[in-house]
């Protein structure tokens, strides 16, 4: 099991290579998106002259939009092109001589990113409770449960992403498909607007897709807004989707590897 530790530490070094960029981007993305979302909802709450909408107060909205950007980054792990770029550049071949399969390697690098963002999420959650609300550290069991759900969700998302990334064996560019997946996951997962604000028919329809379990469920769990049965059901559904996409990956890989020339385009 030594190899996974090597891959893990190498990926961690890569994440922290450009520290100034990393922290500016992290803090900027998280706080600016949070401030924009808060300003929007404050305006909606004021227009309605109410302190609560669909079970959300403004403070809950703030926490929601603090968790969403980092949670989404946990979910999406590595950048778009983590597999397809290697196929296009012909560097996929190097995994033939690695002591682990390409999928094992990519799962570790992906999870390293997710874990790293998970760590950031925990720090920000605690900071939010201590600095903004001025109370205790928050509900730590909910936080751990929420981050764990995000990790399971990121495994499911990874499988969905690999299905699309492997299409690079046929298509000349899959970048736009990955962007579409991100759009769908964020919007239909409740990343832009909590799903409670969607019309009932839409939320009923979305229950049949993996999206609410990828974003909304882990966020709401972190906020302590879910019951044990919600979490259990969500976990079962997430793992089922993960299994379905794993089978798709296997099928596409069997078909696609014959297409790989090692030359790149």
């Amino acid at each position: 099991m030594k190899w996974w530790r090597s891959v893990f530490s190498m990926e961690l070094r890569k994440i922290l290579a450009y520290r100034s960029d990393f922290w500016v981007t992290f803090l900027g993305q998280t706080f600016i998106q949070l401030l924009i979302a808060r300003a929007l909802w404050k305006s909606v709450f004021e227009a309605q002259n109410t302190s609560s909408m669909e079970g959300f107060t403004l403070d809950m909205m703030t926490l929601y939009y603090l968790i969403v950007p980092i949670g989404t980054r946990m979910l999406t792990g590595e950048n778009i092109g983590f597999l397809s770029r290697e196929i296009y550049e012909g560097t996929f071949t190097r995994y033939l001589i690695y002591p682990l399969s390409v999928f094992q390697y990519k799962t570790i690098t992906y999870l390293t990113n997710s874990l790293f963002y998970g760590f950031q999420l925990m720090i920000l959650y605690v900071l939010y409770h201590v600095c903004y609300l001025g109370d205790s550290l928050g509900n730590l069991p909910d936080l751990v449960l929420g981050v764990s759900l995000f990790l399971v969700a990121s495994m499911t998302y990874l499988m969905m992403a690999i299905v699309i990334e492997l299409l690079a064996l046929w298509a000349d560019n899959i970048w736009s498909l990955m962007v579409m997946l991100r759009f769908f996951t964020t919007f239909f997962g409740g990343g832009f607007i909590p799903l409670d604000f969607f019309p009932a028919w839409a939320t009923n329809l979305l229950q049949w897709t993996p999206f609410p379990y990828l974003v909304s469920l882990p966020v709401r769990t972190t906020m302590g807004m879910t019951s044990v049965s919600d979490i259990t059901n969500g976990l079962i559904i997430l793992l089922s989707w993960c299994l379905i996409f794993m089978m798709c990956v296997k099928f596409i890989w069997i078909k696609g590897q014959k297409k790989y020339t090692g030359v790149g385009i």
């Binding site: 298509a171 000349d172 560019n173 899959i174 970048w175 736009s176 498909l177 579409m180 759009f183």
Partner: peptide, 11 residues
Amino acid sequence: FRIDFTFRIVM
């Protein structure tokens, strides 16, 4: 790159 061309429009 026609497939990519189409995908990007849809995106």
